[in-house]
Amino acid sequence: MHLDHTHSGPAALSADAHRPDGSHRALRIGLGGPVGSGKTATVAALCRALRDELSLAVVTNDIYTREDAEFLLREAVLPPERITAVETGACPHTAIRDDISANLEAVEDLEDAVGPLDLILVESGGDNLTATFSKGLVDAQIFVIDVAGGDDIPRKGGPGVTTADLLVVNKTDLAPYVGSDLARMAADAKDQRAELPVVFQSLRRERGVADVAAWVRERLAAWTA
């Protein structure tokens, strides 16, 4: 990273904390997790919770291009120019881990176009339990699973469940209907993750995304400190 504010170099290579003009770039938080666990709904709820206090933008990575981006556009959680879709060639995990170049362009272009930004949420396409974000792309990652996907997912572990900076167990309101044991999920998650935090959430209940939003605010405070 270079801090020479007088010299405008070519674009940053990857995770540099500063933009070519020397300014501090936005915090980038990745949201991954299996298909249907509620990543896009969590992103939408986060946008609604944070958009009045922060300047934020979203990058989506779809399996079929643009579907998640179009959901966010329809829901009007942010102005359209703050939402970008990255096309992933049927391999969403590749685009967030092995070859992050398209996502880096997307976050840099968003900062250039609508910046300065405080926060960029990068949503992965629904994938499997092994998909994690590269550190070259995001500063922190949230892994979203849901109770309907089976209460043994925390026990099974996998890189997402084990190493994500925040594990979100979503759709807790469905637990009684699908026979998921929330206490067991919490205990298994604790075993797998030690001190790393876990949030149980239901976007249908009043508290909604508040805990995840609070965690994001903490990360942002640490990033800008």
């Binding site: 992933t88 391999c91 685009a95 092995d98 070859d99 170049s101 398209a102």
Partner: peptide, 11 residues
């Protein structure tokens, strides 16, 4: 083919 230059998303 694993060189991270974006080719995987193009057919």
């Amino acid at each position: 083919g694993r060189f991270p230059a974006g080719g995987h998303a193009h057919s």
